[in-house]
Amino acid sequence: MTTLDFTPAPGAAPFTRMVFAQARAEVRATLRNGEQLALTLVLPVLLLTGFSMMPLIDVGGSRVDFLTPGVLALAVMSTAFTGQAIATGFERRYGVLKRLGATPLSRAGLMLAKTAAVVAVEVIQAVVIVAVGLALGWRPHGSFLSAALLIVVGTAAFSGLGLLMAGTLRAEATLAAANLVYLVLLGAGGVVFPLSKFPEGMRPVLEILPISALTGGLRSVLAGGAALPLVPLAVLAAWAVLSLGLVSRTFRWE
């Protein structure tokens, strides 16, 4: 039998090593979770290929050019909002957040690790969606940096909303609500169905939804070649500030 030396030798690992270890564990957990993978990868790809190839919607131009930015926005929402809300809600319920709180990994470190894991999964999603889009004849325009900035601010907004749910509701309620919100925003956020198809009176409301801002912003950059759409960026930033501010006040770790 191996001899173990239990003589106390306490000490925290370097901050970056702790965050990296936690982020890696979270990415692995996401990729291993079948339901989450269906939501983050399979559904966006199905929507992209299905609606690109079949003339079910009239977008007044190339369908794949219209759809790819919307599906990228959907992918961001599925990971930063739905996936993160459900996973964190259950971590709270199973006492995982509590247990991690007893390790040297600080709460700030844990949140940083969660963010890094979300970004890593988004990169995988973007690579797959862009590849499928290109194969379907997508011709992106505009600035990569503008698109990336929209995605970063959008990620912050959706993470804030997801954590707001996860930190206050019961895990089961978070599961149900996060999926419901995902479906509603998928239908009403301009992902697949253009906002111009909705009644005139509803549009101002729909346009301030975070998903519409991200979809519209990405679309005006990648399809319209706009430099940096300031209105959608401001809408996303407002959601991010509001939701993350509420999270810092309401989040319950236990």
Binding site: P8, A12, G95
Partner: peptide, 16 residues
């Protein structure tokens, strides 16, 4: 935190 080890009465580990 680094100096104190903790065993909770139950749970604390992600089920998967």
């Amino acid at each position: 935190r680094p100096r104190v080890g903790v065993m909770l009465q139950a749970g604390g580990v992600p089920p998967a």
